[in-house]
């Protein structure tokens, strides 16, 4: 009886000195992200960044999906052709135009053309990638155009959407993936249409996967992009919201 009384006091005291923290939310997405990282994450959880269109590019809308094929899917960095001078200039501008302390430190001279998307307009959009000095990469989608960086390899899955013109489209959806077990992305628009697009793995020093596809105008937001593993299991879902009204 006395022992039971003491044991109850011990249990209560253990509860007080190390209470259950009911304010702390479970974050399964963070687990997924950590599972796919090649480097140990920082102590603080990082919010994934949805890469937005840049440099005057407008986000575009579309309800029906109309993807065109990616030709060809290149995976070997070293055998990929060098980038056009205009792309080299775009990458160089990233460092020049960045606010103090924010430059991605991109190695523009080493940029290569990795993927080509035949657009419904008849023109080609190229995915051009350049490494950064801190082990990450920057990329440009030509013809749209759009640029983005994961300069320090912090974005496990970053989809984005870009278009020449908000009203006339067509839009290009693209993104980078660090998670090595990812195989495909499944794109779902607000009106329920969906399509699966394979990832293209780019070898070292980039060591990341990319996707590139075209959506026909108009689309319905939000657009959800599921990152899928080889079994079709959803690893992460990112949402591209509707662009703000002009």
């Amino acid at each position: 009886m006395i022992e039971e009384w003491y044991d109850n006091r011990v249990a209560a005291a253990l509860d007080r000195v190390n209470p259950l923290d009911t304010r702390l939310p479970a974050d399964w997405e963070d687990v997924i992200v950590r599972a796919g990282r090649t480097e140990r994450p920082a102590r603080r959880r990082r919010r994934l960044v949805v890469l937005a269109a840049a440099g005057g590019t407008l986000l575009a809308l579309v309800p029906a999906l109309a993807f065109t094929s990616v030709i060809p899917s290149v995976t070997d960095w070293l055998s990929s052709p060098p980038a056009a001078p205009s792309s080299l200039q775009s990458f160089a501008d990233l460092d020049r135009q960045a606010p103090a302390g924010m430059a991605p430190d991109v190695i523009a001279a080493e940029a290569r053309r990795l993927m080509t998307l035949r657009r419904s307009t008849g023109s080609d959009a190229h995915l051009v990638i350049a490494p950064t000095r801190s082990g990450g990469f920057c990329y440009e989608i030509t013809a749209v155009p759009s640029v983005g960086c994961d300069a320090h390899r912090e974005i496990a899955f970053g989809p984005g959407l870009a278009a020449d013109n908000l009203s006339s489209g067509p839009a290009v959806i693209f993104g980078s993936v660090l998670m090595s077990e990812a195989s495909n992305v499944r794109i779902r628009t607000g009106n329920g249409e969906r399509r699966t697009v394979p990832l293209t793995r780019v070898s070292s020093p980039i060591d990341a996967s990319f996707f590139l596809a075209e959506l026909s105008m108009p689309t319905t937001f939000p657009i959800s992009v599921d990152l899928l593993d080889g079994d079709g299991l959803t690893l992460v879902t990112k949402t591209i919201p509707a662009p703000p009204s002009p």
Partner: peptide, 20 residues
Amino acid sequence: YETRDDREEHCGDEALRACV
């Protein structure tokens, strides 16, 4: 190993921490 600053102290808690 407690995290809450508003924890109410009880007789024996400090000793229990040390004992654990």
